[in-house]
Design a protein around this nucleic acid. Sequence first.
DNA 1: ACCAGTTTTAAACCCGTGTTTAAGTTTTGT
DNA 2: ACAAAACTTAAACACGGGTTTAAAACTGGT
Lengths: 238, 238
Amino acid sequence: MFARPARKTRKPVTMPDDTRTKLLKAAMKVFSQKGYEKATIREICREADVNIALVNYHFGDKAELYLEVVRYAIDAAAKTKLLNRAVEENADPCDALRQLIRGFIERLSETREQFGFNLQFIMKESTQPTPALSQIIDETLRPLYGRLRSLIGQILSLPADHEKTKLCTHSIMGQVLHYALARPVIGFLWPEMKLTTQQRRRVADHIADFSLAYLLTHRMKPATAEPRSFPRKKREAS
Amino acid sequence: MFARPARKTRKPVTMPDDTRTKLLKAAMKVFSQKGYEKATIREICREADVNIALVNYHFGDKAELYLEVVRYAIDAAAKTKLLNRAVEENADPCDALRQLIRGFIERLSETREQFGFNLQFIMKESTQPTPALSQIIDETLRPLYGRLRSLIGQILSLPADHEKTKLCTHSIMGQVLHYALARPVIGFLWPEMKLTTQQRRRVADHIADFSLAYLLTHRMKPATAEPRSFPRKKREAS
DNA sequence: ACCAGTTTTAAACCCGTGTTTAAGTTTTGT
DNA sequence: ACAAAACTTAAACACGGGTTTAAAACTGGT
């Protein structure tokens, strides 16, 4: 409401260690578990074993702490280039797509890992966007979306921003996100379905098969003549 | 904490009209827009043009009001048998599936309509389940899930509880829910994409085409010999 | 007209939230 | 060694949430 007490020492001279990062880690954990709204700064501070006032001292307010956590997570995510590699290493766009889906699902699933839940993060806010949402999307989801689109465009022999390309892209994203987002619902409907490592792989391959069935039969220029039967269970090392 | 002032007149002798239903309608609206947590009793009462204390007088507390709203919505949903009709009226399971997807997307999209957002309701809770979730799923989502599964099982010539059947079912549900759930995300990635009535239809048909491509080429018994080319843009009256 | 029961009202209550204060303690530069 | 800056602490503050109260207004029956 009124002016904040002029304490804006963003980056102190000391090592960027101790309290600030303790808070970041704790916040990361709590935010990802509870979501922005339900996460309380008291719990974060308890988790970090730190005084309540310190989050305001170091970050200003809850929203800025959240943004900082997001940046932190994004940074960590940028280092795991799994998804990019999938595209670069595979000449065949179909293989790249399959790989991309696998990596995506892997990332979405490993919630407990230290840097695994970036995207889960994103989606948790998706039904009621936070101010951070647009930034998150800009910095992580949009490039991935573009990559996916150009890949699918390749397969379809269509431009990346063609409507059909986009529809297909969202069809695939929808399937992938479903398993990450609606887990509780799936749990009720399909109790035996635990997302173990193997099953994740099965699910990913299913999504790839399911989607390629359409993509391969709807390419615009059937360059290699007739729509050949699909390489359904084309397994390969990750 | 301690005993509630013994006012439990669930159904008064007077017509079940006025205040109680005003509250139900308002609560339905607000809950569906904001979700359980962020919806405030004060806003609901303001919306219903009614005193704050009345929700506690008529329903006990917020949770019971919520449950009552859920029951109300389920009841309303049961009356609109759009989805069931889609199955009964179409001999061809593919047509039934397309119709089902259309109806599903329609239901999910028309948030403003009086009884449109039952399912939106459900999904909003899916990332952070409320106590009501299990009941909702049992009473509405599960039968729909079963219907979808048996339909897909028919197309695939597989039992309804075969793993592949389930995977395909979730693939389709994933796509459909994606457009309802992750709307904000889609909005960022694809700003031109407004879900108008026509575009909803396009999306629904795309999902149907996209999914049938796989289903029709992976039936177990290719009863009618070769996998015939798909009836891609098979429009028909709703 | 009166009364008992039901419904409504305005005002509070209690609690948890994010935030701030004012005073302490530690660290740092000189 | 000493002062200034950085950091930490315990305690409050302000606000909004759900809930409750006690009294007023409204019924319907006799």
